[in-house]
C-alpha cells in the first residue's frame, strides 16, 4: 500500500505535471520540426524548437481575445477549464514510487470518473462558441468517447481484477513479481490506445482536427485556449503515467529507487506515444468505432476472463 505524503505534495503535483507536459510538448515540437527538414542543425535550434509550446502559451496570453457572435462564453470557459482541473484531480492517485498524494480506496474508479469529465469539457468547449466547425469538433469527441471508453474501462478493471483491489497502491503491490503488462498484454495495449483517445491527441485528434480548423478549440482564445490545449497535454501525461502503476509495476524495479522507476517508465510510455503519433494518420470515428466494438471490446472481455480464471486458481 502506498504511503501518504505530507500536504505540501498537493502543491508539488500540479507543478510537476505542468513541467512534464511542457517537456513532452517540447519534444513533440522538436520531432515535428525534424519531420519537415530532417535533423536540426544545432543544439540552439533544438532549444528554440522545444521552447515553441511555451512561446505559444505566452503569445495566447498576450493576444487580444476573440468572441464569436452570440457565443456562450461561460459555457466554453467552463469547458476549457474543466480539462486541466480533471487531469490534475485524476493525478491524485498517481504514485511517484510508492507515495501518492492520496491513495483513495477506490482510486481506479476515481481516475475513471475524472477522465470521463473530458466528455463534458470538450463538448462544452465545442458548443459554446456558436461556430459550426467547433460544434462538429465537440460532437466528434462524444462519438470518440463511445468508441474508446468501454474497452478502456474493461482494461482498467482487468488490472484491478489482477490485484483484486481498486486501490492503486495495492495494484502496484500485486506487481512486485510480475508486471501486469506481461500477462495482460491486450489490456495494456487497449489502455495505451485509450490514453491517446481520452486526450484526443495524436491519431485520435479528430475532435480538434486540422480538417475542422482546430475543431472544439477552433474559436477558443487567450487563457481559455491555453487551458484547453494545455489541459489536453496534462490529460495525456496523466493517462500515460497511470499506465505505470496499472500495468508496468509502478515503482518496482531493481537497483534504482521507486520514484526513479516511475519517472523512467512514464517517460518511456510518453516517448512511445509521441513516436506512435508520427506513424499514424488521424483515425476517423466512423471507421474506428466498429473496430472498437467488434474487435477491442470482445478482446478486452476475453482478457478479463483469462485474468479472472488465473485469480480463481491463485
Amino acid at each position: 500500500m502506498a504511503e501518504r505524503t505530507p500536504l505540501w505534495a498537493v502543491f508539488v503535483l500540479p507543478a510537476l505535471l505542468v513541467a512534464v507536459a511542457l517537456v513532452t510538448a517540447g519534444v513533440d515540437a522538436v520531432l515535428a520540426a525534424g519531420a519537415r527538414t530532417g535533423r536540426p542543425a544545432s543544439l540552439r535550434e533544438v532549444a528554440v524548437r522545444a521552447a515553441g509550446p511555451g512561446r505559444e502559451v505566452l503569445r495566447q496570453l498576450v493576444q487580444q481575445p476573440r468572441r464569436t457572435r452570440a457565443s456562450d462564453v461561460p459555457l466554453a470557459r467552463i469547458g476549457a477549464a474543466l480539462l486541466p482541473v480533471a487531469a490534475v484531480l485524476a493525478a491524485v492517485v498517481l504514485p511517484l514510487g510508492f507515495r501518492s498524494v492520496s491513495d483513495l480506496p477506490d482510486g481506479i474508479v476515481w481516475f475513471n470518473a475524472m477522465e470521463a469529465l473530458a466528455w463534458a469539457a470538450v463538448w462544452l468547449a465545442g458548443w459554446g462558441p456558436n461556430s459550426t466547425l467547433s460544434l462538429i469538433g465537440g460532437y466528434r469527441f462524444l462519438a470518440q468517447g463511445l468508441a474508446y471508453e468501454l474497452p478502456h474501462m474493461l482494461a482498467i478493471t482487468t488490472a484491478a481484477l489482477g490485484a483484486e483491489s481498486l486501490r492503486v497502491g495495492e495494484v502496484v503491490d500485486a506487481q512486485a513479481g510480475l508486471w501486469f503488462a506481461v500477462w495482460m498484454p491486450a489490456a495494456f495495449g487497449i489502455y495505451l490506445l485509450s490514453a491517446m483517445a481520452m486526450a484526443f491527441w495524436g491519431p485520435f485528434d479528430q475532435p480538434a482536427g486540422q480538417d475542422v480548423a482546430g475543431g472544439a478549440a477552433a474559436e477558443l482564445s487567450g487563457a481559455d485556449r491555453v487551458l484547453f490545449l494545455g489541459g489536453r497535454w496534462l490529460l495525456l501525461v496523466v493517462a500515460a503515467a497511470f499506465s505505470v502503476p496499472l500495468f508496468l509495476g509502478g515503482g518496482h524495479g531493481p537497483l534504482l529507487p521507486g520514484w526513479a522507476w516511475t519517472v523512467l517508465k512514464t517517460a518511456a510510455v510518453l516517448a512511445f506515444l509521441v513516436w506512435a503519433r508520427r506513424r499514424i494518420p488521424t483515425l476517423r470515428m466512423e471507421r474506428y468505432l466498429e473496430l472498437a466494438w467488434v474487435v477491442l471490446t470482445p478482446l478486452a472481455i476475453a482478457q478479463a476472463l483469462v485474468v479472472a480464471v488465473v485469480v480463481l486458481n491463485r
Partner: peptide
C-alpha cells in the same frame, strides 16, 4: 491530402 487526413509529419515532409 496528408494534412487533411491528420498526418502532420508526412504533410510537413512532403511540403519540404
Amino acid at each position: 491530402f496528408f494534412a487533411v487526413a491528420g498526418w502532420a509529419d508526412m504533410a510537413a515532409r512532403t511540403r519540404y
